[in-house]
Simulated scan of single mutants.
Amino acid sequence: MASLDLFAGENHEVTQFSEQAYLLHGHVASQADTILSHLRDVIKQSPLRQFVTPGGGKMSVRTSSCGDFGWITDKKGYRYTDTDPITKKPWPPMPETLKTLAEQAAAKCGFESFSPNACLINVYHPGAAMGLHQDKDESDFSQPIVSFSFGLPVTFLWGGLKRGGSPQKVTLQHGDVLVWGGPDRLRYHGVKKLANGQHPLTGNVRVNLTFRVR
């Protein structure tokens, strides 16, 4: 992976690891306290839960959402809804701070029109993982994916446009941001099992926020 000259002089290093996929090192680390406080408020309204996949398996991550839409899965399939199936109420509004930071990260990587209306919250405990998958439940693939990481480090897996092969491994640290779109928008990606550890802000978990246009 090579750093982009495009971002020379910025406070944080940016690494381009595919045609239109970028890692912004530590980009939101300084705002972590504020962001995590907002998340606690969201989770009080729409609690974390372990979804069941269409095949009947229970996901290892604990999930919630905020914004106009939330992503869910059950035996009926993967999809977005405008209400939380647990509370039967609309998903909590996306905190403006989160939305603005996601838009700014996308703009730094060339996606200047990004305006997310869904934020998926995934909390990983040790042993939790995410298999290789595509983000393809959205209606507009011209819009990028923006992903924030907080807490324990993890290995992000970056695959191809089809299943199979050996995915590239990218280490994600506290405060890192991933942005990908364009020809890379439908690449398979996932997360290896989270190793045990402790982080001063999150304890023994990793918190991931994924911003999308539904």
Rank of each mutant, 00 (worst) to 15 (best):
T87A: 02
V61I: 14
A105G: 06
T100F: 04
V52W: 00
T81Y: 00
V123D: 03
T87S: 10
L120I: 15
G77I: 04
C109T: 08
I43L: 15
P116F: 07
N122E: 05
K88N: 14
K58A: 09
A118I: 00
C119D: 04
T97D: 13
A107Q: 15
K99T: 09
V42I: 12
D41N: 12
M59R: 15
I86E: 12
V52N: 05
M94Q: 04
K88D: 10
S113Q: 05
T63D: 01
I72S: 01
A102L: 06
L101R: 05
E112K: 14
G70E: 02
D68E: 11
R62D: 11
Q104R: 13
N122S: 13
K58T: 15
E96T: 13
Y80R: 12
G67L: 08
N117W: 09
H125F: 06
C109P: 08
R79K: 11
M59I: 15
P126V: 10
P90E: 03
D84W: 13
P92S: 01
L101T: 03
N122H: 11
N117M: 07
P47T: 12
V42C: 02
L48P: 09
K88V: 00
V42E: 00
V52L: 09
P95T: 08
P85S: 14
P93Q: 05
W91P: 02
T100V: 10
T83P: 03
T97Q: 13
T87H: 02
D84T: 14
T100R: 13
E103T: 09
Y80H: 14
R49H: 13
P116V: 08
L101W: 02
P85F: 14
K108N: 14
R79W: 00
A107H: 13
S115Y: 11
L120A: 08
A102Y: 00
A105P: 05
S64G: 05
L101Q: 07
R79F: 06
P116R: 03
Y124H: 12
K76P: 00
R62Y: 14
R62K: 15
A102M: 01
D41M: 11
K76Q: 15
P54V: 10
S46K: 01
L120G: 02
T87G: 00
G56A: 04
G67Y: 10
K76L: 11
L98G: 04
V42A: 01
G70L: 03
A105L: 07
A102N: 03
P92I: 00
K75A: 10
V52E: 14
D82N: 12
I72K: 01
Y124T: 12
P47C: 09
C66F: 05
N117R: 07
P85L: 12
W71E: 01
G70N: 02
T73H: 07
T97K: 11
T83V: 14
N117E: 09
T83Q: 08
S113I: 00
A102D: 03
M59P: 03
T63I: 12
F111A: 11
G77P: 07
M59F: 07
I121M: 09
I72M: 04
K88I: 00
